[in-house]
Amino acid sequence: MWKREKKPVVGVFGFSGCAGDQLAILHMEDELVDFFTSADIKFFHMAQSHQEVEHVDIALVEGSINTDKQLAELKEIRKKADIVVALGTCATHGGIQYLGDNEKEFEERMLLVYGKDGKIPEFSELVGNPIPAKPIHKFIEVDFSIPGCPIAKENFIPIYTKLISGLKPSKYPYPVCIECKFQGNDCFLLHGEYCLGPVTAGGCDACCPTFGVPCVGCFGAYEGANFESMIEKLIEIGLTEEDAKRKLMMFGGEATELALKGEK
């Protein structure tokens, strides 16, 4: 019988987000025990305590980076991990809180949310200084990305199984529309209703259109997306260009931002 000599050591780490990707792992009730026993989970704050870690074979990293303290921790994780996997759209694309790099706009937002007497208060070193939210690949080398807000188990399990078996996973190659066709759904766009399936990375089995509601793009930009024709289509069904771009940016992160600026 095939037997691994040693279970790989896995760490699950979380930065800024809603912890939904970690929770999505805990919500895989049928696979939960396998998840915790097929690898040596040394680190998973949301689920367990008493953990210190010197080295991990695989680090699953959730969330975007929005403080200098998180940035230092992320670099620490990179040093300790052989393989770093970005988990969820916040980590892979920046997530809903990705709003670009403009310093002035960033300060306006800080002022709006935390401001007092027209000033942004100082935050202590316990929590670190705020920086605009970014996906983790902006700061460290990332070996593999699993998008999703949150990740879908249909997509996560095959990739994770390969990772802990020492195999190189392959990138999921389709946009949501392909999955939607496999589900046999009627198409929103053909009926003049908005849907972001054509430009959104697949992996969720097109669960929203299958439920009768449009895809809002939560898996982030699909690599082969044709944004130009998506925008044209959205304008054709009655959206303004501004509306179309704003919708594309909701989960689109930096990749979409660059594409919309024509810089990709």
């Binding site: 975007s64 949310v113 316990l126 670190g128 705020p130």
Partner: peptide
């Protein structure tokens, strides 16, 4: 001190102008 170092996501700012 219960310190919360979850970074600032500023949701109230980012929903402005959204439908």
């Amino acid at each position: 001190l219960v310190d919360i170092f979850e970074g600032p996501r500023m949701i109230e700012a980012l929903v402005r102008g959204k439908t």
